[in-house]
Design a protein around this nucleic acid. Structure first.
Lengths: 344, 344
DNA sequence: CTGAAAGCGCTTACAG
DNA sequence: CTGAAAGCGCTTACAG
């Protein structure tokens, strides 16, 4: 954009304080080897002059940036804004700058964003979106991240990726199992799943958990309608409409995230379907509003903000020889949207 | 952090392509004055080598960064994540990097964040939090922004601030008036307000709108209990409890944002208070989930994502001689949480 | 403890 | 159309 007019520079501070720029630099960065009185004087002078260091110059000269990049699918989605909130909490605390961008579930966009971040000499990258079941889709991103790591960059991902990076692993599989078992134990036999794209690892893992629960009762996932739609509220609406149309006999719906569950509840409300009287509905994630829905939503709680904190914390540690994994727990929040299967 | 090992630099590309770094630079930035064939060759070479420009060096040499800063109170709040989503939409489109940070309703934190951004040679700053009624609280921020603008930086704020910057002005006053009139016309005489801190301009403006509606019916704001609490869901709970305890006769509650309204609904549900049968509840903002609450929330719709888009769009335009203001509209979304005053 | 100087990786007048 | 060179504002060996 426009060329910036010159502002106060280190050389101005040094001149004003009557020292060399080397001493001025050391005083301001807190490098030792400067007498306390001189350092103090320089700092005061800088303050008086309203000096702020040019981070680009510092980065170029010193090789550090103190900034980390955060890639989310869509910040308007509460799942990601909670994660982002956790990341920002730690970042503020560590005086780190955070760059944020959308990937929109698109591997090509993700790759472009990673490249931009690398170009920005970012210190670390956190990828918070779901991975893809097909490793080919992220092969380019993977190559980019490997070279980034090789040059000293740090990477942490949230969720299962084929990116060979430190990872925070949400308890998707076990969570899926818990919620399915909950419904099965309430007597539900005809369960449908409002699912996001099965190409996403998040979706695949949650489905795998549901499958495990079914298996333990001698049933198979293949016998359960899994309706794929967008991993959003609108996707939930689409899935709900389809379930109503094609599988009118279901007594329970598991939505694979809370956004979809909200869409399902919305359609059911519109169509006058009683929840949980006629159909039980469960979600996944436990975004803050889940307990304020009516009926309040039974869902699998994942510690989103905590996951953001963990990811950044991992990224700040020196790289290990092999990728670290940190699993989160989950808890099934049983609320009002699920109940025993009605027997009439 | 750690010093980065050297990666492919422009000089490597130039050597490989057999041209000077000046020509290589021009080819890559698309500056004209390079023969098409040479430029093409350089670009291909760069691609082959996986070259990505060092933005810090570019910034230092050229004075541009292509990055903008976004300051929100808290990204976990849907109001701000919607705004951020709008900002990111435009930013992606314009190939701009976005730095994001929390201010947490704290003027000092805000000031520190602004300074960091200025130090980062950011091209533009967007402040999305509410302003403060007391101009003194942001005097330092204002000074910082003025000097930032003087040196070529661009600033846009969302909401009323004493910052003398381009502003997107949410329709807070008119919105407050609309929602109050809605309730008054439903026959409600005893209305309480679940309010955020009155020191925030957002709160003050919404209250002013409510006051205008009351005045037009010959009533005064002073006669209405305005319960101040945190501008969050928890604050809404606190306010609701207080209203129930101290003003048990109210028939309607206006919450000054949707987060507070959700808290109010939550308490009312717990206490078994029928909405809108016993008490009507209205919010402000229309976050996406508002229509999915039960009862669905009557609220003032503000185009949050659009506001984010507008703010960045303004910031990208060359500065005008005097601050521009762009007002948004609002619409009252009448849903199920408000109804006529019960007459028994 | 302090300073002169090299160098980080680019862009952009300036000259040809 | 192309290149040699200066310079952006810092940090950090290297000398003293």
């Amino acid at each position: 954009m426009t060329r910036r007019r010159s502002v106060t520079r280190l050389v101005d501070v040094a001149a004003q304080a009557g020292v060399s720029i080397a001493t001025a630099s050391r005083s301001l960065t807190g490098t030792n080897g400067v007498s306390a009185s001189v350092a103090d004087h320089v700092r005061r002078t800088a303050e008086d002059l309203g000096y702020v260091v040019n981070l680009h110059a510092r980065s170029l000269a010193g090789g550090t940036t103190s900034t980390i990049g955060l890639i989310v699918h869509e910040i308007g989605d509460e799942y990601f804004s909670e994660i982002a909130s956790g990341v920002l909490r730690i970042a503020t605390q560590q005086e780190l700058t955070v760059q944020i961008c959308h990937s929109g579930h698109d591997p090509e966009v993700e790759l472009a964003q990673i490249r931009t971040m690398v170009a920005n000499q970012i210190d670390g990258i956190i990828i918070a979106g779901s991975g893809f079941v097909d490793p080919k889709l992220q092969a380019m991103s993977k190559a980019e991240l490997i070279s980034f790591r090789r040059s000293g960059g740090r990477v942490a991902v949230i969720g299962r990726h084929h990116l060979a990076a430190d990872a925070v692993l949400p308890d998707n599989r076990a969570g899926g199992q818990s919620v399915a078992e909950h419904l099965l134990s309430l007597g539900h036999q005809r369960i449908a799943v409002a699912s996001g794209p099965r190409g996403l690892t998040t979706v695949a893992d949650r489905l795998a958990g549901i499958e495990a629960a079914l298996r333990s009762r001698g049933r198979r996932l293949e016998d359960v309608p899994v309706i794929e739609a967008a991993f959003t509220r609108d996707g939930g609406k689409v899935a709900a409409a389809k379930i109503l149309g094609e599988h009118g006999d279901v007594t329970a719906v598991i939505a694979l995230n809370d956004a979809m569950a909200i869409g399902v509840l919305s359609i059911f409300r519109t169509r006058g379907i009683k929840v949980p009287g006629q159909v039980s509905v469960a979600g996944f994630g436990d975004i803050p509003v889940a307990e304020d829905l009516a009926p309040s939503l039974t869902t699998v709680r994942l510690p989103m903000a905590k996951m953001g904190e963990l990811a950044l914390t991992m990224a700040l540690k020196p790289a290990a020889s092999r990728p670290r994994r940190q699993t989160t727990g989950h808890s099934l929040m049983v609320r009002d949207s699920t109940g025993p299967v009605s027997t009439h």
